[in-house]
Design a binder for these strands. Structure first.
Length: 470
RNA sequence: GCUCCCAUCGUCUAGCGGUCUAGGACGUGGCCCUCUCAAGGCCAAGACACGGGUUCGAUUCCCGUUGGGAGCACCA
């Protein structure tokens, strides 16, 4: 039998990293086994479900490199299916109409809980056999009162609960709308889902869903519950305290490859391997090695991974990803300019994110006379005493035969030789500030090569003009 | 409160009874390299939650305790 899996997010306006990881696990596992991956939008909550909201979730998946084979299906468009299933359950007496009002139930529930007992619906309407004409009513599933609703979870092993712990749950509201569990099970049956891989928060819901499968005369799928991701304080991931939207990470300059690598390793491992390409994820991921304990998302590890992927990114690709960020900052640059590409090569090992890279590349994109010099750096390195050497260097650079690192280095050393006691650092720093505006940059010779002779000379001239007098 | 789940360095994890004076990675500290900043190399500190069993022998198996988490809706 061929494998069919699904990812079923609710369109909340963004793709949550927990959901993203669940999707990634589903995707990787399905791809490895050559199965079919279905996408289903659980948008029965019409309030929050908008087209933009759905697009954000789909966009997040696509950006991560997660593709699907069928869908997206929307639960909002499948109401007839749920209604039909409920009617069938009613007709076969596997479900019954319940006329208890929420207020009545709450009163009885409170009374029961007050005695310290566990509350499940007291089945007041179970034997009444109300017909359709009974007035406003909900529909409840007859859940077995004995035996165990058990299953063998691929991650957690033998799991389940005593059936009597569950009680007769509502599957259709008084207003006629189906409840989540009913819709999920009906859909999973209709879509022929063979393996459900989802968050461990559903571990406790599974027994009830099992009862639903049984009532529907359907064979339940295999289940694999993956541990939750918790915040850096070890508690539940909070939208307030933790960055949780995939979109946020994209905007912050993280690469999808780094995100996937980060997420796949959070709760899963393959020996001591840390780096996993998308290709490796889809060939190596397996449910056996999924952790049972929930894990904390470590932003530091993500940064490290991101830098790793930045370091091995093809130059052109990087250029076309960083250029828009520069343009957005008001300093456009031609992504195909070879010098810009060369600069990015120098910046790779100094940048943890694309955003940071763009900031560091800014001096290249800005016009010579608009370069802002860092005040602290200027105070520290632009001393009146550096003027003679700087003037000397300006002249020397103008005479460099071939504008490459070796030629520029030779020019620096020629100048150093004429100024006794002057160390390279003492000359490099003022020049660095003149050319990049900052006291930190890639190697000075390489930087000058990239910025070009004309712009180097223009910037040094401007620095000379700004240099404090003796 | 009830039900279920979980528990190795700060974090992610390896370990599936002896190979463990517990390995790797991120992070942290130090050193080297060095024109700045990085990157890189080397070194270091750092964990089996606790208590009982089982066993010749437990990080590994069992039971408690403690500590976390999830679920208990006419939410999804």
């Amino acid at each position: 039998m061929s494998i069919r899996t699904r990812f079923a997010p609710s369109p909340t306006g963004y793709l949550h990293i927990g959901g993203a990881r669940t999707a990634l696990y589903n995707w990787a596992w399905t791809r490895r086994l050559g199965g079919t991956f279905v996408l289903r939008i659980e948008d029965t909550d019409r309030e929050r479900s908008t087209a933009e909201s759905e697009a954000a979730v789909l966009g997040g998946l696509s950006w991560l490199g997660i593709d699907w084979d069928e869908g997206p299906f929307r639960q909002s468009e499948r109401g007839a299916l749920y209604a039909e299933a409920i009617e069938r359950l009613l007709a076969s007496d596997r479900a019954y109409r319940c006329v208890c009002t929420p207020a009545e139930i709450e009163a009885r529930r409170a009374a029961t809980v007050a005695t310290g007992a566990k509350w499940t619906y007291d089945r007041r309407c179970a034997a009444a056999a109300y017909g359709p004409e009974c007035g406003p009513h909900a529909v409840r599933l007859r859940v077995p009162t004995d035996g165990k609703l058990g299953f063998d979870d691929a991650v957690f092993g033998p799991s389940g609960q005593e059936a009597r712990e569950i009680g007769d749950m509502v599957i259709r509201r008084t207003d006629g709308s189906p409840l989540y569990h009913l819709a999920v099970v009906v859909d999973d049956v209709a879509m022929g889902i063979t393996h459900v891989i989802r968050g461990a928060d559903h571990l406790n819901n599974t027994p009830f869903q099992l009862a639903l499968y049984r009532a529907l005369d359907a064979k339940p799928p295999h289940f694999a519950h993956v541990p939750l991701i918790v915040g850096s304080d070890g508690r539940k991931l909070s939208k307030r305290r933790d960055p949780v939207a995939v979109q946020h990470f994209r905007d912050a300059g993280y690469l999808p490859e780094a995100m996937c690598n980060w997420l796949v390793r959070l709760g899963w491992s393959h020996g001591d391997q840390e780096i996993f390409s998308m290709q490796e994820i889809r060939t190596l991921f397996d449910l056996d090695a999924v952790q049972r304990a929930s894990g904390q998302a470590d932003p530091g590890k993500l940064e490290w991974l991101n830098q790793h992927y930045i370091k091995e990114r093809p130059r052109d690709r990087l250029a076309h990803e960083v250029a828009p960020l520069l343009a957005a900052a008001g300093t456009p640059v031609d992504p195909d300019n070879p010098a810009f590409g060369a600069l990015l090569d120098l910046l790779r090992e100094r940048s943890k994110t694309l955003v940071e890279m763009a900031e560091r590349a800014r001096f290249f994109a800005v016009p010579d006379d608009a370069l802002v010099h860092d005040a602290d750096a200027v105070r520290k390195h632009w001393k009146p005493a550096t003027r003679p050497a700087l003037e000397d260097l300006a002249g020397e650079l103008a005479r460099v035969a071939t504008w490459d690192a070796a030629g520029i280095e030779a020019a620096f050393h020629a100048v150093l030789a004429r100024h006794a006691g002057l160390a390279l650092g003492k000359l490099a720093q003022p020049v660095r500030i003149a050319v990049t505006g900052s006291a930190a940059s890639p190697g000075i010779f390489e930087t000058l090569v990239v910025i070009g002779r004309d712009r180097t000379c223009a910037r040094i001239a401007r620095a000379l003009a700004l240099l404090p007098a003796a």
